[in-house]
Design a protein around this nucleic acid. Sequence first.
DNA 1: GTGGTCTAGACCACC
DNA 2: GTGGTCTAGACCACT
Lengths: 122, 122, 122, 122
Amino acid sequence: MITLNHRGPRPIYEQVRDGLRHLIVTGALLPDEKLPSVRTLASTLAINPNTIQRAYEALEREGYLYTLSGRGTFAAAGRRSDPQRQQELLSQFDAAAAELLFLGMTAEELAARLRTRKEEQA
Amino acid sequence: MITLNHRGPRPIYEQVRDGLRHLIVTGALLPDEKLPSVRTLASTLAINPNTIQRAYEALEREGYLYTLSGRGTFAAAGRRSDPQRQQELLSQFDAAAAELLFLGMTAEELAARLRTRKEEQA
Amino acid sequence: MITLNHRGPRPIYEQVRDGLRHLIVTGALLPDEKLPSVRTLASTLAINPNTIQRAYEALEREGYLYTLSGRGTFAAAGRRSDPQRQQELLSQFDAAAAELLFLGMTAEELAARLRTRKEEQA
Amino acid sequence: MITLNHRGPRPIYEQVRDGLRHLIVTGALLPDEKLPSVRTLASTLAINPNTIQRAYEALEREGYLYTLSGRGTFAAAGRRSDPQRQQELLSQFDAAAAELLFLGMTAEELAARLRTRKEEQA
DNA sequence: GTGGTCTAGACCACC
DNA sequence: GTGGTCTAGACCACT
Protein backbone atom coordinates (compact mmCIF):
# COMPACT_ATOMS: atom_id res chain seq x y z
CA MET A 1 0.00 0.00 0.00
CA ILE A 2 1.10 3.54 -0.71
CA THR A 3 0.74 6.37 1.77
CA LEU A 4 0.49 9.94 0.56
CA ASN A 5 1.43 13.15 2.25
CA HIS A 6 -0.79 15.85 0.83
CA ARG A 7 1.02 18.54 2.72
CA GLY A 8 4.70 19.08 2.22
CA PRO A 9 6.53 20.01 -0.93
CA ARG A 10 6.79 16.57 -2.58
CA PRO A 11 4.38 16.33 -5.51
CA ILE A 12 1.83 13.57 -5.17
CA TYR A 13 2.74 12.00 -8.50
CA GLU A 14 6.34 11.62 -7.29
CA GLN A 15 5.16 9.92 -4.12
CA VAL A 16 3.04 7.54 -6.17
CA ARG A 17 5.89 6.93 -8.61
CA ASP A 18 8.41 6.22 -5.88
CA GLY A 19 5.97 4.07 -3.94
CA LEU A 20 5.20 1.92 -6.95
CA ARG A 21 8.87 1.67 -7.89
CA HIS A 22 9.58 0.49 -4.38
CA LEU A 23 6.93 -2.22 -4.66
CA ILE A 24 8.46 -3.38 -7.92
CA VAL A 25 12.13 -3.41 -6.94
CA THR A 26 11.43 -5.13 -3.63
CA GLY A 27 9.50 -7.87 -5.39
CA ALA A 28 6.15 -7.02 -3.84
CA LEU A 29 4.95 -6.76 -7.42
CA LEU A 30 6.26 -9.71 -9.38
CA PRO A 31 7.38 -9.41 -13.02
CA ASP A 32 4.40 -9.32 -15.41
CA GLU A 33 1.98 -8.85 -12.56
CA LYS A 34 -0.86 -6.53 -13.44
CA LEU A 35 -1.04 -3.21 -11.67
CA PRO A 36 -4.37 -1.66 -10.75
CA SER A 37 -5.90 0.38 -13.54
CA VAL A 38 -5.36 4.10 -13.56
CA ARG A 39 -8.93 4.74 -12.50
CA THR A 40 -8.96 2.06 -9.81
CA LEU A 41 -5.78 3.23 -8.14
CA ALA A 42 -6.95 6.81 -8.41
CA SER A 43 -10.13 6.07 -6.53
CA THR A 44 -8.24 3.92 -4.00
CA LEU A 45 -5.85 6.75 -3.22
CA ALA A 46 -8.59 9.34 -3.55
CA ILE A 47 -6.72 11.41 -6.12
CA ASN A 48 -7.26 12.34 -9.74
CA PRO A 49 -6.62 9.70 -12.44
CA ASN A 50 -4.35 12.12 -14.28
CA THR A 51 -1.99 12.12 -11.35
CA ILE A 52 -1.76 8.32 -11.40
CA GLN A 53 -1.32 8.41 -15.15
CA ARG A 54 1.64 10.71 -14.75
CA ALA A 55 3.31 8.32 -12.31
CA TYR A 56 2.69 5.33 -14.60
CA GLU A 57 4.08 7.25 -17.54
CA ALA A 58 7.28 8.11 -15.67
CA LEU A 59 7.80 4.51 -14.56
CA GLU A 60 7.25 3.23 -18.07
CA ARG A 61 9.83 5.71 -19.34
CA GLU A 62 12.26 4.41 -16.70
CA GLY A 63 11.56 0.81 -17.70
CA TYR A 64 9.91 -0.40 -14.48
CA LEU A 65 6.53 -0.85 -16.14
CA TYR A 66 5.15 -1.75 -19.51
CA THR A 67 1.78 -1.24 -21.12
CA LEU A 68 -0.26 -3.52 -23.34
CA SER A 69 -2.69 -1.19 -25.02
CA GLY A 70 -6.23 -1.83 -24.02
CA ARG A 71 -5.13 -4.53 -21.59
CA GLY A 72 -3.47 -2.74 -18.73
CA THR A 73 -0.16 -1.93 -17.09
CA PHE A 74 2.30 -4.58 -15.88
CA ALA A 75 5.45 -4.75 -13.77
CA ALA A 76 8.65 -5.24 -15.77
CA ALA A 77 11.47 -7.60 -14.88
CA GLY A 78 14.81 -6.27 -13.69
CA ARG A 79 17.41 -5.31 -16.23
CA ARG A 80 20.91 -3.93 -16.38
CA SER A 81 20.25 -0.94 -18.64
CA ASP A 82 20.16 2.81 -18.01
CA PRO A 83 23.66 3.39 -16.66
CA GLN A 84 22.68 6.90 -15.64
CA ARG A 85 20.08 5.74 -13.15
CA GLN A 86 22.48 3.10 -11.86
CA GLN A 87 25.15 5.73 -11.32
CA GLU A 88 22.70 7.90 -9.42
CA LEU A 89 21.72 4.98 -7.20
CA LEU A 90 25.34 4.13 -6.48
CA SER A 91 25.92 7.73 -5.42
CA GLN A 92 22.97 7.54 -3.05
CA PHE A 93 24.18 4.20 -1.77
CA ASP A 94 27.69 5.53 -1.18
CA ALA A 95 26.49 8.71 0.49
CA ALA A 96 24.18 6.87 2.88
CA ALA A 97 26.85 4.25 3.63
CA ALA A 98 29.55 6.85 4.25
CA GLU A 99 27.41 8.73 6.75
CA LEU A 100 26.28 5.55 8.50
CA LEU A 101 29.90 4.45 8.85
CA PHE A 102 30.77 7.90 10.18
CA LEU A 103 27.99 7.59 12.73
CA GLY A 104 29.50 4.39 14.07
CA MET A 105 27.91 1.55 12.15
CA THR A 106 30.31 -1.10 10.94
CA ALA A 107 30.70 -2.33 7.38
CA GLU A 108 29.75 -5.77 8.68
CA GLU A 109 26.41 -4.56 9.99
CA LEU A 110 25.60 -2.96 6.67
CA ALA A 111 26.70 -6.05 4.72
CA ALA A 112 24.44 -8.18 6.92
CA ARG A 113 21.60 -5.80 6.18
CA LEU A 114 22.26 -6.26 2.47
CA ARG A 115 22.02 -10.01 2.82
CA THR A 116 18.68 -9.73 4.64
CA ARG A 117 17.35 -7.49 1.90
CA LYS A 118 18.46 -9.92 -0.78
CA GLU A 119 16.73 -12.82 0.91
CA GLU A 120 13.48 -10.90 1.23
CA GLN A 121 13.52 -10.13 -2.48
CA ALA A 122 14.47 -13.66 -3.52
CA MET B 1 35.48 20.91 -3.48
CA ILE B 2 31.76 21.53 -3.77
CA THR B 3 29.97 21.88 -7.07
CA LEU B 4 26.77 23.87 -7.26
CA ASN B 5 23.94 23.60 -9.72
CA HIS B 6 22.31 26.99 -10.01
CA ARG B 7 19.67 25.66 -12.35
CA GLY B 8 17.25 23.15 -11.02
CA PRO B 9 14.93 23.43 -8.06
CA ARG B 10 17.31 22.46 -5.21
CA PRO B 11 18.06 25.43 -2.95
CA ILE B 12 21.73 26.43 -2.96
CA TYR B 13 22.09 26.22 0.81
CA GLU B 14 21.00 22.57 0.74
CA GLN B 15 23.62 21.82 -1.85
CA VAL B 16 26.29 23.49 0.26
CA ARG B 17 25.10 21.72 3.42
CA ASP B 18 25.08 18.32 1.75
CA GLY B 19 28.42 18.93 0.08
CA LEU B 20 30.07 19.87 3.37
CA ARG B 21 28.47 16.96 5.21
CA HIS B 22 29.79 14.68 2.51
CA LEU B 23 33.32 16.01 2.99
CA ILE B 24 33.04 15.42 6.71
CA VAL B 25 31.54 11.92 6.70
CA THR B 26 33.95 10.67 4.04
CA GLY B 27 36.90 11.90 6.06
CA ALA B 28 37.99 14.52 3.57
CA LEU B 29 37.65 16.92 6.47
CA LEU B 30 39.20 15.34 9.56
CA PRO B 31 37.79 15.80 13.06
CA ASP B 32 38.68 19.20 14.50
CA GLU B 33 39.95 20.42 11.16
CA LYS B 34 39.15 24.06 10.56
CA LEU B 35 36.66 24.91 7.84
CA PRO B 36 37.05 28.00 5.69
CA SER B 37 35.39 31.09 7.09
CA VAL B 38 31.92 31.99 5.93
CA ARG B 39 33.23 34.88 3.89
CA THR B 40 36.07 32.89 2.35
CA LEU B 41 33.88 30.03 1.28
CA ALA B 42 31.24 32.44 0.01
CA SER B 43 33.72 34.16 -2.27
CA THR B 44 35.18 30.80 -3.38
CA LEU B 45 31.75 29.55 -4.40
CA ALA B 46 30.69 32.97 -5.66
CA ILE B 47 27.52 33.04 -3.61
CA ASN B 48 26.05 35.10 -0.81
CA PRO B 49 27.65 34.70 2.66
CA ASN B 50 24.18 34.34 4.15
CA THR B 51 23.74 31.15 2.19
CA ILE B 52 26.94 29.70 3.62
CA GLN B 53 25.95 30.83 7.09
CA ARG B 54 22.67 29.00 6.78
CA ALA B 55 24.44 25.78 5.75
CA TYR B 56 26.90 26.05 8.66
CA GLU B 57 24.05 26.58 11.10
CA ALA B 58 22.18 23.55 9.82
CA LEU B 59 25.26 21.33 10.12
CA GLU B 60 25.98 22.60 13.61
CA ARG B 61 22.42 21.79 14.60
CA GLU B 62 22.90 18.30 13.18
CA GLY B 63 26.17 17.89 15.07
CA TYR B 64 28.59 17.69 12.15
CA LEU B 65 30.25 20.99 13.00
CA TYR B 66 31.06 23.03 16.04
CA THR B 67 31.92 26.69 16.35
CA LEU B 68 34.43 28.30 18.69
CA SER B 69 33.46 31.92 18.81
CA GLY B 70 36.13 34.15 17.43
CA ARG B 71 38.21 31.14 16.36
CA GLY B 72 36.21 29.59 13.54
CA THR B 73 34.21 26.55 12.59
CA PHE B 74 35.52 22.99 12.92
CA ALA B 75 34.53 19.50 11.80
CA ALA B 76 33.09 17.32 14.56
CA ALA B 77 34.05 13.70 15.20
CA GLY B 78 31.66 10.86 14.43
CA ARG B 79 29.95 8.48 16.90
CA ARG B 80 27.14 10.72 17.80
CA SER B 81 23.66 9.44 18.17
CA ASP B 82 20.70 10.91 16.40
CA PRO B 83 18.31 7.99 16.01
CA GLN B 84 16.04 9.88 13.66
CA ARG B 85 18.80 10.76 11.22
CA GLN B 86 20.15 7.23 11.42
CA GLN B 87 16.73 5.80 10.63
CA GLU B 88 16.41 8.09 7.64
CA LEU B 89 19.83 7.02 6.38
CA LEU B 90 18.98 3.35 6.75
CA SER B 91 15.85 3.91 4.69
CA GLN B 92 17.87 5.57 1.96
CA PHE B 93 20.43 2.79 2.14
CA ASP B 94 17.76 0.09 1.86
CA ALA B 95 15.94 1.81 -0.99
CA ALA B 96 19.08 2.29 -3.04
CA ALA B 97 20.25 -1.26 -2.32
CA ALA B 98 16.88 -2.79 -3.25
CA GLU B 99 16.80 -1.03 -6.59
CA LEU B 100 20.43 -1.86 -7.37
CA LEU B 101 19.76 -5.53 -6.61
CA PHE B 102 16.68 -5.36 -8.86
CA LEU B 103 18.79 -3.91 -11.64
CA GLY B 104 21.12 -6.88 -11.51
CA MET B 105 23.87 -5.99 -9.07
CA THR B 106 24.78 -8.71 -6.60
CA ALA B 107 24.92 -8.36 -2.83
CA GLU B 108 28.59 -9.30 -3.08
CA GLU B 109 29.35 -6.40 -5.40
CA LEU B 110 27.67 -3.98 -3.01
CA ALA B 111 29.40 -5.47 0.03
CA ALA B 112 32.75 -5.12 -1.74
CA ARG B 113 31.87 -1.51 -2.42
CA LEU B 114 31.21 -1.01 1.29
CA ARG B 115 34.63 -2.38 2.19
CA THR B 116 36.32 -0.08 -0.32
CA ARG B 117 34.46 2.88 1.12
CA LYS B 118 35.49 1.92 4.65
CA GLU B 119 39.14 1.69 3.71
CA GLU B 120 39.11 5.10 2.06
CA GLN B 121 37.67 6.63 5.18
CA ALA B 122 40.09 4.81 7.50
CA MET C 1 16.45 -11.29 -39.13
CA ILE C 2 13.66 -9.07 -37.88
CA THR C 3 13.03 -8.40 -34.21
CA LEU C 4 9.54 -7.49 -33.06
CA ASN C 5 8.48 -5.53 -30.04
CA HIS C 6 5.05 -6.74 -29.01
CA ARG C 7 4.85 -4.18 -26.26
CA GLY C 8 4.76 -0.57 -27.22
CA PRO C 9 2.33 1.22 -29.48
CA ARG C 10 3.89 0.51 -32.92
CA PRO C 11 1.70 -1.83 -34.96
CA ILE C 12 3.37 -5.14 -35.74
CA TYR C 13 2.85 -4.86 -39.47
CA GLU C 14 4.78 -1.58 -39.52
CA GLN C 15 7.66 -3.22 -37.72
CA VAL C 16 7.70 -6.06 -40.25
CA ARG C 17 7.46 -3.64 -43.17
CA ASP C 18 10.28 -1.45 -41.89
CA GLY C 19 12.43 -4.48 -41.04
CA LEU C 20 12.04 -5.94 -44.52
CA ARG C 21 12.65 -2.59 -46.18
CA HIS C 22 15.79 -2.25 -44.13
CA LEU C 23 17.02 -5.64 -45.32
CA ILE C 24 16.39 -4.63 -48.92
CA VAL C 25 17.92 -1.16 -48.88
CA THR C 26 21.03 -2.31 -47.02
CA GLY C 27 21.60 -5.06 -49.56
CA ALA C 28 21.01 -7.92 -47.15
CA LEU C 29 18.36 -9.01 -49.63
CA LEU C 30 19.79 -8.69 -53.13
CA PRO C 31 17.67 -7.61 -56.12
CA ASP C 32 15.48 -10.44 -57.40
CA GLU C 33 16.22 -12.56 -54.35
CA LYS C 34 13.21 -14.56 -53.23
CA LEU C 35 11.64 -13.65 -49.89
CA PRO C 36 10.19 -16.29 -47.61
CA SER C 37 6.54 -17.08 -48.25
CA VAL C 38 3.90 -15.33 -46.21
CA ARG C 39 3.16 -18.48 -44.25
CA THR C 40 6.83 -19.32 -43.64
CA LEU C 41 7.72 -15.88 -42.39
CA ALA C 42 4.56 -15.79 -40.29
CA SER C 43 5.50 -18.99 -38.50
CA THR C 44 9.13 -17.85 -38.14
CA LEU C 45 8.04 -14.64 -36.45
CA ALA C 46 5.17 -16.36 -34.63
CA ILE C 47 2.57 -13.91 -35.81
CA ASN C 48 -0.54 -13.97 -37.96
CA PRO C 49 -0.03 -14.48 -41.74
CA ASN C 50 -2.42 -11.59 -42.37
CA THR C 51 0.08 -9.28 -40.70
CA ILE C 52 2.88 -10.43 -43.01
CA GLN C 53 0.59 -10.12 -46.02
CA ARG C 54 -0.16 -6.54 -45.08
CA ALA C 55 3.55 -5.71 -44.85
CA TYR C 56 4.26 -7.33 -48.24
CA GLU C 57 1.43 -5.39 -49.86
CA ALA C 58 2.69 -2.13 -48.46
CA LEU C 59 6.22 -2.76 -49.72
CA GLU C 60 4.96 -3.77 -53.14
CA ARG C 61 2.97 -0.55 -53.30
CA GLU C 62 6.13 1.35 -52.40
CA GLY C 63 8.11 -0.51 -55.06
CA TYR C 64 10.54 -2.41 -52.84
CA LEU C 65 9.04 -5.80 -53.74
CA TYR C 66 7.36 -7.44 -56.67
CA THR C 67 5.22 -10.55 -56.81
CA LEU C 68 5.15 -13.22 -59.52
CA SER C 69 1.87 -15.00 -59.01
CA GLY C 70 2.34 -18.58 -58.08
CA ARG C 71 6.11 -18.13 -57.86
CA GLY C 72 6.59 -15.94 -54.82
CA THR C 73 7.73 -12.50 -53.73
CA PHE C 74 11.05 -10.95 -54.73
CA ALA C 75 13.18 -7.98 -53.76
CA ALA C 76 13.17 -5.14 -56.29
CA ALA C 77 16.24 -3.25 -57.48
CA GLY C 78 16.90 0.34 -56.43
CA ARG C 79 16.94 3.45 -58.63
CA ARG C 80 13.27 4.05 -58.61
CA SER C 81 11.81 7.48 -58.27
CA ASP C 82 9.24 8.35 -55.68
CA PRO C 83 9.90 12.01 -55.04
CA GLN C 84 7.60 12.10 -52.02
CA ARG C 85 9.38 9.27 -50.26
CA GLN C 86 12.75 10.76 -51.14
CA GLN C 87 11.70 14.09 -49.70
CA GLU C 88 10.58 12.43 -46.52
CA LEU C 89 13.88 10.58 -46.22
CA LEU C 90 15.86 13.75 -46.75
CA SER C 91 13.89 15.41 -43.95
CA GLN C 92 14.68 12.53 -41.64
CA PHE C 93 18.31 12.64 -42.70
CA ASP C 94 18.55 16.38 -42.07
CA ALA C 95 16.80 16.19 -38.72
CA ALA C 96 19.01 13.39 -37.42
CA ALA C 97 22.14 15.11 -38.76
CA ALA C 98 21.23 18.46 -37.21
CA GLU C 99 20.70 16.95 -33.79
CA LEU C 100 23.88 14.87 -33.97
CA LEU C 101 25.88 17.95 -34.91
CA PHE C 102 24.27 19.82 -32.00
CA LEU C 103 25.27 17.01 -29.66
CA GLY C 104 28.89 17.42 -30.62
CA MET C 105 29.51 15.08 -33.54
CA THR C 106 31.46 16.56 -36.42
CA ALA C 107 30.39 16.62 -40.06
CA GLU C 108 33.54 14.61 -40.81
CA GLU C 109 32.51 11.81 -38.47
CA LEU C 110 29.12 11.61 -40.13
CA ALA C 111 30.60 11.72 -43.63
CA ALA C 112 32.95 8.89 -42.68
CA ARG C 113 29.97 6.95 -41.46
CA LEU C 114 28.29 7.46 -44.84
CA ARG C 115 31.31 6.05 -46.65
CA THR C 116 31.37 2.98 -44.42
CA ARG C 117 27.68 2.44 -45.06
CA LYS C 118 28.21 2.73 -48.82
CA GLU C 119 30.99 0.16 -48.77
CA GLU C 120 28.92 -2.34 -46.85
CA GLN C 121 26.13 -2.04 -49.36
CA ALA C 122 28.43 -2.23 -52.37
CA MET D 1 7.38 28.82 -36.14
CA ILE D 2 5.71 25.54 -35.35
CA THR D 3 2.88 24.11 -37.39
CA LEU D 4 0.44 21.69 -35.82
CA ASN D 5 -1.62 18.96 -37.37
CA HIS D 6 -4.66 18.51 -35.17
CA ARG D 7 -5.86 15.53 -37.16
CA GLY D 8 -3.68 12.49 -37.48
CA PRO D 9 -2.38 10.22 -34.77
CA ARG D 10 0.61 12.27 -33.59
CA PRO D 11 -0.14 13.86 -30.22
CA ILE D 12 0.06 17.63 -30.24
CA TYR D 13 2.55 17.73 -27.38
CA GLU D 14 4.93 15.58 -29.42
CA GLN D 15 4.63 17.89 -32.38
CA VAL D 16 5.40 20.86 -30.14
CA ARG D 17 8.29 19.01 -28.50
CA ASP D 18 9.84 17.98 -31.80
CA GLY D 19 9.29 21.40 -33.32
CA LEU D 20 11.02 23.15 -30.42
CA ARG D 21 13.85 20.61 -30.41
CA HIS D 22 14.35 21.27 -34.08
CA LEU D 23 14.59 25.03 -33.47
CA ILE D 24 17.18 24.41 -30.78
CA VAL D 25 19.41 21.91 -32.59
CA THR D 26 19.42 23.94 -35.80
CA GLY D 27 20.49 27.03 -33.92
CA ALA D 28 17.30 28.99 -34.57
CA LEU D 29 17.15 29.31 -30.78
CA LEU D 30 20.59 30.22 -29.48
CA PRO D 31 21.94 28.85 -26.18
CA ASP D 32 20.47 30.67 -23.18
CA GLU D 33 17.87 32.36 -25.34
CA LYS D 34 14.53 32.68 -23.59
CA LEU D 35 11.64 30.68 -24.93
CA PRO D 36 8.12 32.06 -24.92
CA SER D 37 6.29 31.47 -21.66
CA VAL D 38 4.01 28.50 -21.39
CA ARG D 39 0.94 30.70 -21.52
CA THR D 40 2.19 32.85 -24.38
CA LEU D 41 3.09 29.94 -26.62
CA ALA D 42 -0.17 28.25 -25.73
CA SER D 43 -2.19 31.21 -26.89
CA THR D 44 -0.01 31.63 -29.99
CA LEU D 45 -0.60 28.04 -31.01
CA ALA D 46 -4.19 28.15 -29.80
CA ILE D 47 -3.82 25.14 -27.54
CA ASN D 48 -4.00 24.51 -23.81
CA PRO D 49 -1.08 25.63 -21.61
CA ASN D 50 -0.90 22.13 -20.12
CA THR D 51 0.01 20.75 -23.52
CA ILE D 52 2.88 23.21 -23.89
CA GLN D 53 3.98 22.46 -20.36
CA ARG D 54 4.22 18.80 -21.21
CA ALA D 55 6.46 19.52 -24.19
CA TYR D 56 8.71 21.80 -22.13
CA GLU D 57 8.93 19.17 -19.40
CA ALA D 58 10.01 16.49 -21.87
CA LEU D 59 12.66 18.72 -23.42
CA GLU D 60 14.04 19.68 -20.02
CA ARG D 61 14.28 15.98 -19.15
CA GLU D 62 16.18 15.42 -22.39
CA GLY D 63 18.51 18.31 -21.63
CA TYR D 64 17.56 20.65 -24.47
CA LEU D 65 16.01 23.20 -22.11
CA TYR D 66 16.51 24.48 -18.64
CA THR D 67 14.29 26.36 -16.27
CA LEU D 68 15.06 29.18 -13.86
CA SER D 69 12.18 29.12 -11.46
CA GLY D 70 10.05 32.19 -11.67
CA ARG D 71 12.17 33.53 -14.53
CA GLY D 72 11.34 31.38 -17.51
CA THR D 73 12.57 28.62 -19.78
CA PHE D 74 15.79 28.83 -21.77
CA ALA D 75 17.52 26.91 -24.56
CA ALA D 76 20.44 24.77 -23.41
CA ALA D 77 23.79 24.47 -25.18
CA GLY D 78 24.77 21.29 -26.98
CA ARG D 79 26.39 18.50 -25.04
CA ARG D 80 27.78 15.04 -25.60
CA SER D 81 25.73 13.18 -22.98
CA ASP D 82 22.86 10.70 -23.19
CA PRO D 83 24.43 7.93 -25.26
CA GLN D 84 21.04 6.30 -25.67
CA ARG D 85 19.57 9.25 -27.55
CA GLN D 86 22.74 9.49 -29.64
CA GLN D 87 22.48 5.82 -30.54
CA GLU D 88 18.87 6.27 -31.58
CA LEU D 89 19.79 9.21 -33.76
CA LEU D 90 22.62 7.29 -35.41
CA SER D 91 20.17 4.51 -36.23
CA GLN D 92 17.80 6.99 -37.82
CA PHE D 93 20.69 8.56 -39.68
CA ASP D 94 21.90 5.19 -40.96
CA ALA D 95 18.43 4.03 -41.96
CA ALA D 96 17.66 7.20 -43.90
CA ALA D 97 21.11 7.18 -45.52
CA ALA D 98 20.87 3.52 -46.52
CA GLU D 99 17.53 4.02 -48.22
CA LEU D 100 18.65 7.21 -49.96
CA LEU D 101 21.72 5.42 -51.29
CA PHE D 102 19.52 2.56 -52.43
CA LEU D 103 17.31 5.03 -54.28
CA GLY D 104 20.28 6.28 -56.23
CA MET D 105 21.72 9.21 -54.27
CA THR D 106 25.48 9.19 -53.96
CA ALA D 107 27.46 9.39 -50.76
CA GLU D 108 28.99 12.59 -52.12
CA GLU D 109 25.62 14.27 -52.48
CA LEU D 110 24.73 13.40 -48.90
CA ALA D 111 28.12 14.53 -47.58
CA ALA D 112 27.65 17.84 -49.39
CA ARG D 113 24.26 18.16 -47.74
CA LEU D 114 25.91 17.63 -44.37
CA ARG D 115 28.36 20.44 -45.03
CA THR D 116 25.54 22.80 -45.97
CA ARG D 117 23.70 21.91 -42.80
CA LYS D 118 26.81 22.52 -40.71
CA GLU D 119 27.32 25.96 -42.20
CA GLU D 120 23.75 26.98 -41.56
CA GLN D 121 24.10 26.03 -37.90
CA ALA D 122 27.48 27.74 -37.49
C1' DG E 1 5.08 37.74 -14.14
C1' DT E 2 7.13 32.59 -14.31
C1' DG E 3 6.84 27.37 -14.22
C1' DG E 4 4.69 23.34 -11.52
C1' DT E 5 0.93 20.70 -9.81
C1' DC E 6 -3.69 19.12 -9.31
C1' DT E 7 -8.59 18.44 -10.32
C1' DA E 8 -12.61 17.64 -13.23
C1' DG E 9 -14.40 16.02 -17.11
C1' DA E 10 -14.26 14.83 -21.90
C1' DC E 11 -13.01 12.03 -26.11
C1' DC E 12 -10.22 8.62 -28.57
C1' DA E 13 -8.31 3.96 -29.98
C1' DC E 14 -7.65 -0.55 -28.70
C1' DC E 15 -9.21 -5.03 -26.81
C1' DG F 1 -12.93 -2.46 -19.83
C1' DT F 2 -7.83 -0.29 -20.68
C1' DG F 3 -4.34 3.53 -21.25
C1' DG F 4 -3.50 8.17 -23.77
C1' DT F 5 -4.50 12.84 -24.81
C1' DC F 6 -6.55 17.28 -24.38
C1' DT F 7 -9.11 21.13 -22.33
C1' DA F 8 -10.49 24.29 -18.66
C1' DG F 9 -9.63 26.30 -14.67
C1' DA F 10 -7.61 26.57 -10.18
C1' DC F 11 -3.82 27.23 -6.69
C1' DC F 12 1.03 27.33 -5.26
C1' DA F 13 5.95 29.10 -4.79
C1' DC F 14 9.30 31.87 -6.57
C1' DT F 15 11.24 36.42 -8.57
